[in-house]
Amino acid sequence: MPSIAVYSVKGGVGKTTFAVNLAWCAANISRRETLLWDLDASNGSGFLLGIAPKKKRAAESVFDRHNDPARLIQKTAFDHLHLLPADESIRTLDRQFDRIGKKKRLAKLTEQLGKEYDRIIFDCPPVLNEISGQVMRAADLVIVPLPPSPLSSRALDQVVEEVRGAGTGHPPILPVMSMVDMRRNLHREAREANPKWPVVPLASAIEQCAVERQPVGAFAPRSPAARAFAQLWTAIERKLAKSK
């Protein structure tokens, strides 16, 4: 049961949009039983899927050793895709991890949930703390969305440092260029500098995800954006296969 983290230390890079669309691809293209686990207090994944958390402070309680995380999982409108939503209690999760003193608590819960799911995808908050450390110890692959800018290069360096800090056996990283507009010189130069990185274009269909509250593949399956996410998912599955 591979687990995939969509992570960046920089906000506004399309992280949640990536997580939702990749989870949809896992469920609808690969037909994998997929769990999208939202670890960001904004509950962006739940919003994009039209799902609200059941009650406040539920998301934090998942990590209590006496609770069963499966009871908070919600079905989505799409076959094979379930959501473990976030709420504002996630804001205190870093302190909770410090309190319980379990460095691999998230990894153990992921392993437990992996008995029911073929793929688990984490929508991670843009933080550098114990939450990100827990994610790195749980993930088999880290996807890093990077808009073409100098700040994105710095963000990638920080992610690499965070992943390596997880210790031996740390997960591989797959950088993905996001919001790419090849009409812009900076974007073309960034693409030429990193020709092997997957690309997701700047597209109105992706922006419409927040309006439709659906993954782009569900409402615009023939769009370039939908094809880009499908190709990215294929690249992810190949990378996971190679890492076995």
Rank of each mutant, 00 (worst) to 15 (best):
I120N: 03
A139D: 05
R95H: 09
G114R: 00
V135E: 09
F97I: 15
E116S: 14
E116V: 15
V135C: 13
K108N: 13
P126Q: 14
G133E: 07
P125W: 01
L128I: 15
I120Q: 06
R119M: 14
Q96A: 01
A139P: 13
E130S: 11
V135Y: 03
G101E: 01
P126F: 05
R95I: 12
L141A: 05
D118W: 08
L113V: 11
E116K: 09
Q112E: 12
K104L: 10
L141G: 11
Q112N: 11
C124E: 03
Y117F: 15
P126A: 09
L109N: 04
L128P: 01
K115D: 00
R119T: 14
K108H: 07
D94L: 10
D118Y: 03
R95W: 04
R99M: 10
D118Q: 15
G101L: 04
P125H: 01
R91T: 15
T110M: 04
V142R: 07
T92S: 13
L113N: 03
Q134K: 05
F122T: 08
F97K: 09
F97S: 07
I120F: 02
G133P: 00
N129R: 06
D123T: 14
R119L: 14
F97E: 08
V127S: 09
I121K: 05
D94V: 11
N129E: 02
V127H: 08
L113M: 15
T110N: 04
K104E: 14
I131M: 15
K102A: 15
I120V: 13
E111L: 12
T92Q: 09
I120L: 11
G133R: 01
P125A: 14
V135T: 02
K104C: 02
I121L: 14
Q112S: 09
R137L: 11
I131K: 12
K108F: 02
T92M: 06
R119S: 09
S132K: 04
L141K: 10
K115A: 14
D98A: 15
I120D: 04
R99Y: 06
R91E: 11
A107C: 04
I131P: 05
I131N: 12
M136N: 01
V142P: 02
R95L: 10
E116Y: 09
S132V: 10
M136F: 01
R99F: 06
D118S: 14
E130H: 07
E116F: 12
D123I: 09
L128K: 12
D118E: 15
S132P: 05
R137W: 07
K103L: 10
A139W: 06
T92I: 11
R119W: 04
V135Q: 03
G101I: 12
N129H: 02
I100Q: 05
Y117D: 06
E130T: 08
P126Y: 05
Q96D: 03
K115T: 10
R119D: 03
G101Q: 03
D140T: 11
V142C: 08
D123P: 08
C124W: 06
P126H: 13
L93E: 08
G133F: 01
L106P: 05
S132Y: 02
M136T: 02
N129F: 02
L113D: 11
K108T: 09
D118H: 13
P125E: 00
V142H: 00
K103M: 11
I100G: 00
D123Y: 05
R137C: 04
G133Q: 01
L109T: 10
D94Q: 03
L93K: 08
L141V: 09
D94G: 05
R95Q: 15
F97H: 08
D98M: 15
L128R: 06
R91C: 05
G114H: 01
P125T: 03
E111D: 10
